[in-house]
Design a protein around this nucleic acid. Structure first.
Lengths: 146, 146
DNA sequence: TTCCAAACAAATAATGATTATCAATAAATA
DNA sequence: TATTTATTGATAATCATTATTTGTTTGGAA
């Protein structure tokens, strides 16, 4: 998480540019996304927004997330099971390291990945638009605790 | 798909080893998985099995797939959306190249990936047990047809 | 071979995350 | 301020998957 304030402003600017309204509920979601490094779930965002706006509906969170996905300002990280988590700080594809026990997600550095896309593209003739690279395992903490 | 016959035998042997029954329905599912290079969906497998056993239930296909996942003989490939496809030929993690238009899945060669796991593991202290690498885009065919 | 217990199949109900619907509300525009 | 449009909140619908229930099949003991 580089600079939450700046990230928030970027997202706000993007919404304005697209002539979308910045409602209090949307603002709350954006704020949470910009400040979170934990890759929150919809449910988690929902709970936090309800802290400020107790009448907020879960549907509104979903709609806001879909909106943000649509304009490329949030990245969805789908687990193997149905559930998803969201990254509002790095909305472009990047590798994740997921602890299958405590569900922590961290973003490892991995430069070597960059060339792969070109390699695959050339090999197959695909025009590659996106990718997904996730590693699953146990974080060092969870390795200790049994 | 190296040798469907051999692959089928391997899966059968694994079931036997685990003292699980090889029922006609299960056999049909194994056969389809071993012969398919198309990475079929549950629904697709279901349709095919119904060709031979018209009374087969969708639940049976799901249960068989879950069983095979459990003993590591089939790999689930989850799309971004809810749907999944299955690979009974290479049941270990390997990269995929997915056409978002026609939903074709191919398995590119990509040796460079192998070292990544070690790199990430060392960098983060994770004990990595699995991974997932998927590229999304348009296959050459779909690039032509608009 | 017959019987029994365990594994399995089929049919269907339940689940649960996500999506759609729609009346009420809020914001933008004139 | 009146009008138009987007958005919200509440709730219903969807749909893939999972659980449940009941009846059937299987393999082994007697």
């Amino acid at each position: 998480m580089a600079d939450p304030q700046k990230r928030l402003e970027t997202m706000l600017a993007k919404l304005k540019e697209k002539e979308m309204r910045i409602t209090p509920q949307r603002f709350a979601v954006l704020k949470i996304l910009s400040e979170s490094s934990e890759h929150p779930s919809v449910e988690r965002i929902y709970e936090q927004v309800r802290g400020d706006f107790p009448t907020t509906s879960l549907a509104t969170i979903y709609k806001t997330i879909i909106l943000l996905k649509g304009i490329g300002e949030v990245l969805e990280i789908g687990f193997g099971d149905g559930s998803s988590r969201y990254d509002g700080n790095k909305p472009y594809p990047h590798p994740h390291l997921i602890c299958t026990r405590c569900r922590t997600i961290i973003d490892p550095d991995l430069d070597s990945l960059h060339d792969m896309t070109a390699e695959v593209s050339e090999e197959t003739g695909f025009r590659i638009t996106s990718h997904r690279l996730d590693f699953f395992g146990l974080c060092s903490e969870c390795q200790k605790n049994r």
